[in-house]
Nucleic acid binder design. Structure first.
Lengths: 219, 219
DNA sequence: CAAACTAGAATATGATCAAATTTATTTTTG
DNA sequence: CAAAAATAAATTTGATCATATTCTAGTTTG
């Protein structure tokens, strides 16, 4: 007899990982800020081993970097880093959208509209945290629809590199100046026009990176 | 004072990571094969914590995957995975070559010719292990020349996904049927013709993936 | 100014406990 | 009775922690 899908016990190291990942992804730990093992064990009420493993996973993804000695920080993006990120996201996201468009059901698209609506609401409320989470959620949902595990894996990694800086930008310029191409993307998707959806998302990506780049210049 | 070696203090977890990474990258641990913590502690004469951390890092990169329960294996690529890998490598490698071409000195190109020569030698000797290492070395050297850390990071991850299967192919068809576009790449580079170098490397990439795909079909 | 000291953080070990797989044993059933 | 199924014991492996050791950086002191 197998134990059905009853109680799936999630190990501590996994929980710590997810917790820390979100803190980084949504800018709770700012770029440049150090992360210590001791500090996390206290903050997260976890043992040393789980924290250690979570840090290793995130540094393997580039979300944390070793600073020479034994210090670990959330990396600060350089101008060149942004160019590289833009290059990759500009190729990846349109591809993922095209795959997603082929597979999306009307219900899927409806779900995406719901997320986008929450996103708009967060923008008008000026709720940065909700904006970041909904924006991520929108893209992440598309990745899952695309059903392309390796592309999704890489896209996730890129988001970990790019997310923290997005928070910095929003903290600086607020949410009101933010725009997105999600409506156009969704309209194209519901017509099954993958190419147009891809173009829209490419604009969305580049716009996001440019906003970070611009914000970095006058800082 | 530090008495003995003024060498850099490389932590055990780093050594274990590098060791395990190479074992996976060059197919010493075949796709589908399981990796256990206890097993590695014995084989590598290391403690549990370092082994554990190395496994986390590699599974964060996708070089190891959790198989439901608590079993960890080197993943077996599906047809679709190969398509995704090809898509990414086909974008990445040409870009890296173009960047490398801009920065390469004659000495750099000479070094690459040396590696390529070793590679040819390995092919004619039928030395699969040397072939895999020199082939990786060739590309890795180009990545470093490009001086684009994020692109390099992603390229490294892709290599971890694709390397193990390359070994399987070579074990099946030997090295004699292998070809590469490295000569053409190097000639183009030394003329500063990044576009031509990019085209050559794109052919190299696609050819490599196709060889895996073909080998997978009749297995 | 530099050598010695010190505090704190990271690294590493091995023990312990829990979960899962394997093997052995018993029970059921055709 | 033998084959299959179910159960129980044994073994392996993973998760976590407490503890010891090693480094690093900062401070004191000669």
């Amino acid at each position: 007899m197998k134990n059905e899908s009853s109680h799936l016990k999630v190990p501590a190291h996994e929980l710590v990982y997810q917790n820390l990942r979100e803190r980084i992804l949504f800018g709770e730990i700012a770029p440049g800020q150090a992360v210590t093992i001791k500090g996390l064990t206290k903050k997260l009420h976890a043992g040393m081993t789980p924290v250690r493993e979570a840090i290793r996973r995130l540094s393997a993804a580039g979300a944390l970097t070793f600073q020479g000695n034994r210090r670990v920080i959330v990396p600060v993006l350089s101008e060149q880093n942004l160019t590289e990120l833009n290059f990759l996201r500009e190729k990846l996201e349109p591809k993922l959208i095209m795959l997603a468009t082929k597979r999306a059901t009307p219900a899927d698209i409806e779900g995406l509209r719901g997320i986008d609506h929450e996103l708009d609401s967060a923008i008008t409320r000026g709720d940065i945290n909700a904006y970041l989470r909904q924006n991520y959620q929108f893209h992440k949902t598309l990745y899952k629809l695309a059903d392309a595990p390796i592309l999704e894996q890489i896209a996730d990694i890129l988001w970990l590199l790019y997310g923290p800086s997005l928070r910095v930008v929003c903290g600086r310029i607020g949410t009101l100046n933010l725009t997105d191409q999600h409506k156009e993307t969704l309209n194209a998707m519901s017509e099954g026009d993958g190419q147009r959806a891809a173009d829209a998302i490419r604009a969305d990506v580049t716009q996001g990176i440019d906003q970070i780049r611009h914000s970095m210049l006058n800082s």
